[in-house]
Design a protein around this nucleic acid. Structure first.
Length: 589
DNA sequence: CCCCCGACTTGGCGCTACGCGA
DNA sequence: TCGCGTAGCGCCAAGTCGGGGG
């Protein structure tokens, strides 16, 4: 598996990088990264990211395979055949294919809502949006006129059965067949899984989004709309002009939409979002293998650290403004106080016609605030991706007074901060610290909480690895709580499950005959109990680990207490944070 | 000058490979 | 060896924010 962290002690950033990446970078057209390559990387003139970029283009999804002729939807209880070959419409999808998409969603829950009443088929907007797109594919003379009379269950039942059969077939495969399948996959990865940047091969994921139905994470007014099938002519490739790859779809030659050579960006290909071509989708290097992401991460954490160094100055600044005579300034200062205190996202403005009405700091409405006795305020709103945010905090007197006056005489649906937005908030923050933006507060919060928790967490040298891991998790949970990262799908079942397991393990411990068995049972109990808090609040630690926690804090702690870092970071995270591995044990956020 | 959108980060969750206990 | 549960990986949705362009 992974070598122990101690092997990497005192390696420089570039040396470690080379160890991680260069061993595997032998491909036609790509040489191994040498010192010069890494030096160039750091010294590239501003805005320029690469000199040569080479890749084999993008990978299109499989074409649609028609259903057997006897599998049909029912319209008004009678079987109806749908066209399965004509894709001559703006979505490039056959009428039957669209029906298959819908049939596979009818039992699915709309995310964020209670499952019992929120099957997609019962969601009026979901159905209305699908119907309006499907109607266009069917054409206006089609016999299907009333969506309510369409029964998709025959297709659903067929697809479910087919999927089950496929699993059985896979199980029944001989080792040789399995090996061949694996080889095929590897061959595709070999061809489409890498880009060569300035002569160095790096992982990319070349897959174009397949067509389907747009499933919003929250309550987007566009949920249920059909996402079109992307055509080669929709694709813009970013590639060195002398290395433009051949365009092929299902083995047939085709033509790329556009070829560009934009050296100031890191994307490899782009195309209009399949739902709404005003937005752009991108193909990038894999996050964990991208040297650009590595370097940007480092910059991001340094910004957060800089906020930490200057936090008293920043606090002093906005505290003064809390009592400013100008209403605008008071609003800004109050918002920054909340940013600092609660690490809420800034809340950029949204288009209510096409986007969910999830909220952030500057878009909060008076109905989201409740003024409690004793100077506390409860914040209750739905945030990014439909995650509920509900916290009660005691605020300083000026903030309480400001918030109260901002909400007095206003309807619940009116904005708490009518005169500010994310842009003006960021502009205001620049007064205190250049390069400071609202989201930096979240990164700063994550770093400072983890550093604090780990400072107070001093494992005994006799502790086993799993005990150290538990201590670490406790600290990580604190961070995830602060950032309100949750896993809603698990519901309440998770806690019950953990509790049940603990009971079982206790029984097992009682029944244990040898001290060794007893100890092993206790270890399992510890692990489960460690999960209890996480489960009870549906906390998800992953997002903070991937995006918010400065890996240097973790590396330093691991070195200090001889904790193998691979117990905290998986393979990909080890790669993503490769730049931090030479951090010394005394390093602090 | 301002606003829209380009480019990138951040987010939850479904799927699957894999490891563990029976 | 087999079935089962789970971590983790990849997918794609949903944010942030600065600067290009009208």
């Amino acid at each position: 598996m992974y070598e122990n962290l101690s092997n990497y002690k005192n390696l420089s950033f570039s040396t470690y990088n080379k160890m991680a990446y260069c061993k595997i970078q032998k491909i036609p057209g790509g040489t191994q990264a040498d010192d010069k390559w890494w030096e160039n990387l750091e010294s590239k003139s501003k805005g320029k990211k690469w000199d040569t970029m080479r890749h084999n283009g993008v990978l299109f999804p499989e074409p649609y395979k028609p259903l057997p002729k006897n599998v049909k939807i029912k319209y008004d209880k009678k079987p109806v055949s749908l066209d399965s070959t004509d894709t001559d419409n703006p979505l490039h999808i056959t009428a039957e294919e669209a029906a298959v998409f819908f049939a596979m969603k009818i039992d699915q829950d709309i995310r964020t809502e209670k499952p019992e009443n929120k099957k997609a088929i019962n969601d009026k907007i979901f159905c209305k949006n699908f119907w309006s797109d499907w109607k266009k594919i069917l054409g206006k003379d089609h016999i299907i006129k009333d969506f309510k009379l369409v029964d998709f269950t025959p297709i659903r039942d067929y697809i479910v059965k087919r999927a089950a059969k496929k699993i059985e077939e896979k199980k029944a495969m001989t080792p040789e067949e399995k090996a061949e399948l694996k080889e095929q996959k590897a061959a595709t990865t070999e061809l489409y899984g890498y880009a060569v940047i300035d002569g160095v091969r790096l992982g990319m994921s070349a897959g174009i989004q397949p067509p389907g139905i747009y499933m919003s994470h929250a309550d987007s007014p566009l949920r249920g709309r059909i996402k079109k099938r992307i055509q080669p002519s929709d694709i813009t490739l970013n590639v060195s002009k002398k290395y433009v790859p051949e365009c092929k779809i299902n083995g047939k030659p085709c033509k790329w939409g556009e070829i560009v050579e934009k050296k100031d960006v890191s994307w490899i290909a782009s195309y209009g979002n399949p739902l709404d071509s005003k937005n752009t989708n991108y193909i990038y290097l894999k996050r964990e293998g991208s040297h650009w992401v590595c370097m940007d991460d480092k910059v991001k954490f340094e910004k957060a650290r800089n906020l930490g160094k200057n936090i008293s100055k920043v606090r002093k600044g906005y505290t003064q403004d809390l009592d400013s005579k100008a209403s605008n300034t008071r609003q800004l200062a109050t918002a920054v106080y909340l940013l600092d205190e609660l690490a809420i996202r800034p809340g950029t403005e949204k288009d209510e016609k096409t986007e969910s009405d999830t909220l952030g700091l500057t878009t909060l409405k008076c109905g989201n605030l409740k003024f409690e006795r004793g100077g506390s305020v409860t914040f209750d709103f739905t945030g990014k991706s439909g995650v509920p945010f509900k916290k009660t905090v005691k605020v300083v007197e000026s903030v309480y007074k400001n918030l109260k006056s901002l909400c007095t005489g206003k309807k619940d649906s009116e904005q708490v901060f009518p005169d500010i937005n994310a842009i003006s908030l960021n502009g205001y923050l620049k007064n205190f610290l250049s390069e400071l933006t609202a989201k930096v507060f979240r990164t700063y919060k994550a770093g400072s909480i983890l550093q604090n928790e780990l400072d107070n967490c001093v494992p005994k040298s006799t502790d086993e690895v799993h005990e150290k891991k538990l201590s670490f998790n406790k600290a990580n949970i604190k961070v995830a709580q602060a950032l309100n990262h949750k896993n809603l799908a698990a519901g309440d079942k998770k806690v019950d499950k953990v509790n049940k397991k603990i009971e079982e393990l206790k029984e097992k411990k009682k029944a244990a005959k040898t001290p060794k068995q007893k100890a092993s049972a206790q270890k399992s109990i510890d692990v489960q109990e460690g999960k209890l808090e996480e489960a009870s609040e549906n906390i998800s630690m992953n997002t903070s680990k991937v995006n918010y926690i400065d890996s240097r804090i973790i590396v330093a702690w691991c070195k200090k207490y001889d904790m193998p870092i691979e117990k905290i970071y998986n393979k990909n995270l080890l790669k993503k944070f490769v730049w931090a591995m030479d951090t010394v044990s005394t390093w602090r956020f």
